[in-house]
C-alpha cells in the first residue's frame, strides 16, 4: 500500500514539476532550437528572395500589360468613414463597367485606417474619357446611401491616375464622394 501511495504521489510531483518549471522547458527547447535557427534563417532568406522576385514580376506585369503611355489606374480611399459604412463600389469608364467590388469588414477597416485600394488598372488611349463611380453603403442614421461622381479625363501620353475619395463632410454630417486626378 505504501508503494502504491508513493507511486501516485510521484505522479502528483511530476505533474507539478511539468507545470511549474518553465525554465526547464526553455532549456529543452533551446537545444532543439539550434537546428531550427538554421532552417528559419534559410526560410527567411528564401522569403526575402521570393519578395524580390514577386516585386520584379509585379513591375514586369505592369510594363507588359499596361505600358506607361496608355496606363490608367483608379484608386479608392476612405477618409475616416464615420458617416459611411462602405458596402460596394462600381466603376464605369465611358459607360462601360470596368470594376466592381464588394467590401469585407476587414477591407473597409483597412481603408478607414489609411489604406488605399487600387480599384482598377487598365489601358486608355489619348483623348477625352468619362469616368463614373457609384458608391453604396450605410450612411448616417443607418440609412442606405448611394452616390455617384463623374470625372472628365483628358488622357495624354503619360500615365493617368485617379482617386475616388470618400470623406466625411462635417458641415452636414454626410459622406462625400469625389474623383480627383493625381498629377
Amino acid at each position: 500500500m505504501v508503494t502504491l501511495k508513493s507511486t501516485f504521489a510521484l505522479h502528483i510531483v511530476s505533474l507539478a514539476l511539468a507545470f511549474w518549471l518553465p525554465a526547464a522547458m526553455a532549456q529543452d527547447n533551446g537545444e532543439a532550437g539550434t537546428d531550427d535557427v538554421a532552417v528559419s534563417l534559410s526560410v527567411e532568406e528564401l522569403k526575402k528572395q521570393v519578395i524580390r522576385l514577386n516585386r520584379d514580376l509585379f513591375i514586369l506585369e505592369e510594363d507588359l500589360l499596361y505600358p506607361a503611355s496608355t496606363q490608367f489606374a483608379v484608386f479608392l480611399s476612405l477618409d475616416t468613414g464615420e458617416f459611411l459604412k462602405l458596402d460596394s463600389v462600381k466603376l464605369k469608364v465611358n459607360d462601360e463597367t470596368v470594376a466592381a467590388h464588394l467590401y469585407t469588414e476587414r477591407q473597409a477597416k483597412a481603408l478607414q485606417r489609411g489604406g488605399m485600394q487600387r480599384l482598377h488598372i487598365g489601358n486608355l488611349k489619348t483623348g477625352d474619357h468619362e469616368v463614373t463611380v457609384f458608391v453604396e453603403g450605410i450612411g448616417p442614421d443607418n440609412r442606405a446611401y448611394k452616390q455617384a461622381a463623374t470625372y472628365q479625363l483628358q488622357k495624354d501620353t503619360d500615365t493617368a491616375a485617379l482617386e475616388v475619395r470618400i470623406r466625411d463632410r462635417s458641415s452636414d454630417y454626410q459622406p462625400e464622394v469625389a474623383i480627383v486626378e493625381w498629377e
Binding site: 489606374a73 484608386f75 480611399s77 477618409d79 477591407q107 477597416k109 483597412a110 481603408l111 485606417r113 489609411g114 489604406g115 488605399m116 485600394q117 487600387r118 491616375a161 482617386e163 475619395r165 493625381w182
Partner: peptide, 15 residues
C-alpha cells in the same frame, strides 16, 4: 489619407 498611392496600397494590405 495616404499621400502616395504606392504607400496607400501597401497600407491597404498591411491593415
Amino acid at each position: 489619407r495616404a499621400a502616395d498611392p504606392a504607400y496607400g496600397m501597401a497600407l491597404y494590405e498591411y491593415y
